Simulated assay, not measured.
Amino acid sequence: MQQGIGGKRCRQHEATIASIRRHPTRLKSGKEALKLRFVGQRMAEKIDDVIKTGNMRRLQYEESTESAIVTKLFMGIYGVGMTTARDWYSRGMRTLDDLSGSHRRIVLTPAQQIGLKYYTDLAERMPRSEAKAIFDAIKAIAIGIDPSLELTIMGSYRRGQETCGDIDILLTRPTIDGRSHSGVLRKLLPKLRAAGVLTEDLSYPSDLDDEEAKYMGLCRLGHEGKMRRIDILTIPYHQRGAALIYFTGDDVFNRSLRLKARHDGYSLNQRGLFTGVTRDPKTKVKLSNGIIIASETEREIFNILKVPWQEPHQRRRAT
């Protein structure tokens, strides 16, 4: 429940930020900001604070407390969310050493143990060149299994950023010859492990033969390379356009596009653009999925939503 609440709060904050960014002129007060959609009283007070002092004193104080610092440290471990991090703090944990060794008083999941073991490597963003070299090695092995496979490196790499937090690979295959990529992960993952590209498994799909599956693990470039996070996702070929949008990001761009779709009476997710979706008028919970009308290319989805085409490198927030 806590994670759901946290996710909802995060989405609300992003909607607020997007609303402020769309404002045509620089805000002069929190009172002016209150007129904007998604801006509440607390956010207006923070805006007033920024305008008057150039910083957020309350936020600076909150982020400097021991509990905030330790919680942030623990959340840097793969598989650890805010609820778990705060629980560990409440139980006396203060450092990474407190979480390891025979003296520890908590039980870590296998994934958390891996995240703790390679904490330093995983906390560091990798150069774009390293991500490309790992991707090229994986693609070569995959093409050796089936030359018709299509692999695309997603996320921040596709958006053109110079560093990447992890590697996201989208894998699919044209079906014009009556075949698909079903079963390719069953062949690919052992070969990547044997080649030394994959080093640790974090999560295996329940069905390796499913056309829509996700593998999560660690990889590295060469035997001395640093450990890096990697996800390999397989998708049905007819969903590739929607999947390219979804897994390219960034998250603010994606949410804005989904909001536009919803405003126009559609529903957009990683599988496609749907029409005829019905929702409960009170809870807004989806009652029916509707009918898919676009999914094969990114451009057809943009065109139906009447959104000007944006190259992947344009789909990122200003920094």
Rank of each mutant, 00 (worst) to 15 (best):
H263P: 02
H263E: 15
V277E: 13
L149W: 12
S19Y: 12
S129T: 14
R128Y: 03
G92D: 04
L99H: 01
T199E: 03
R186G: 06
I17T: 00
K139N: 15
F302S: 09
K284M: 14
E224V: 04
E211P: 06
I293G: 12
M227G: 11
A318G: 04
R220P: 01
H181E: 13
V197M: 05
D168E: 08
G115L: 07
R229F: 09
R179G: 11
R105P: 01
D210Q: 11
V107M: 13
G6H: 09
S295F: 02
L305G: 00
L170N: 08
T278D: 08
T297M: 09
I235G: 01
R86H: 09
I77V: 15
G101I: 01
T152W: 06
I292K: 14
S102D: 13
R159D: 01
E130F: 00
T319K: 14
I134T: 03
I138H: 11
L221H: 12
F253N: 01
R11H: 11
G30D: 05
F38Y: 15
T95L: 11
T297N: 05
I145F: 08
T65H: 12
R94V: 04
H238W: 07
R26K: 15
A68Q: 08
Y215W: 02
T163W: 05
G40Y: 12
Q239N: 13
E296Q: 12
Y61F: 14
A111H: 08
W88K: 01
